[in-house]
């Protein structure tokens, strides 16, 4: 294992609980490389997760960490950030965690543009509970609760985040870990709500039931469905079917919530009248 990231791990917590071939470890490595290259101190980082396979990440990293309730990583993180804005607050969520049970919190965190990074590990399935379909399971794929094929449309989380008011929005995959690491680093450094969705593989709960039994087959599939944004834009609607654009969708600088709140405090201290 790469020495530069080992220092950020709680070694006594290993071995980890993830299945062989799972993509979550790749995302964990990408996040730690991003943190290392920024040079943040461990003491100033708070990493918050919800519930699911991806949420176990927080147990393995040597920061101030929290493994909260299902879907609620963002409101917990919001309380932390507002009580101590000097902390670097990162949330890690899965697709069910973020887009289903936590969907409301996700759009409102974006609306506030609070300085929190949301890393969403999208393996398109509820992995920990055994393969039920999620809001990001592609239409037509099989889940244990969609045995005849999923008829739901899935969310485009990046479009959702852009329209809800985030500052930085990007999508990458575990197949393109160099790009993923670059986006994660930019997201960490962005003052505002930043979102990086990373398409990940779940060979056990998604792959086996969808005829991609090995991690390699799943990664090949991820490679085949992800298309760089500039190429994707030139595709016909039929060609876009079943494909996901990758790249950066938004990178802007707009007023950030905890900063805005400081203005509120100043206004209140001056008697509440003049802005």
């Amino acid at each position: 294992m790469n020495n530069e990231i080992v220092q950020y791990l709680r070694k006594e917590m290993f071995p980890n609980i993830w299945c062989p071939g799972c993509g979550i470890g790749i995302v964990l490595g990408a996040m730690l490389r991003a943190i290392h290259s920024i040079g943040w101190e461990k003491d100033e980082i708070v990493m918050v997760s919800g519930i699911g396979c991806s949420s176990r990440i927080t147990g393995y990293v040597d920061f101030n960490t929290m493994n909260t309730t299902h879907g609620r990583a963002l409101p917990y993180a919001t309380g932390i950030k507002m009580a101590n804005p000097s902390l670097k607050v990162i949330t890690v969520m899965g697709d069910g965690d973020c887009a289903a049970i936590g969907g409301n919190h996700f759009i409102h965190a974006a609306r506030r543009n609070i300085d929190i990074t949301a890393i969403i590990i999208n393996n398109m399935i509820y992995g920990m509970t055994g393969g039920q379909y999620s809001p990001l399971t592609p239409t037509g794929k099989i889940g244990t609760t969609a045995p005849y094929g999923n008829i739901d449309q899935c969310f485009d989380l990046t479009s959702l985040a852009v329209s809800a008011g985030a500052s930085y929005v990007a999508r990458s995959s575990v197949f393109d870990v160099i790009q993923a690491t670059r986006f994660i680093k930019k997201a960490f450094l962005k003052k505002g709500f930043s979102v990086v969705e990373i398409i990940s593989d779940c060979p056990i709960s998604f792959g086996r039931i969808n005829r991609m039994r090995t991690p390699a087959e799943m990664l090949e599939w991820i490679k085949s469905i992800t298309v760089p944004k500039n190429k994707w834009e030139k595709l016909t609607p039929e060609e876009k079917e079943g494909k996901l654009p990758t790249g950066e969708f938004l990178d802007i600088n707009i007023p950030e919530y905890s900063k805005n709140y400081q203005e509120v405090c100043i206004r209140a201290q001056q008697g509440g009248k003049d802005k």
């Binding site: 609620r72 919001t78 309380g79 932390i80």
Partner: peptide
């Protein structure tokens, strides 16, 4: 979210 933020703030 109100309950979650309250707990997060307390931890901070």
């Amino acid at each position: 979210a109100s309950m979650a933020a309250t707990i997060g703030a307390s931890l901070a």
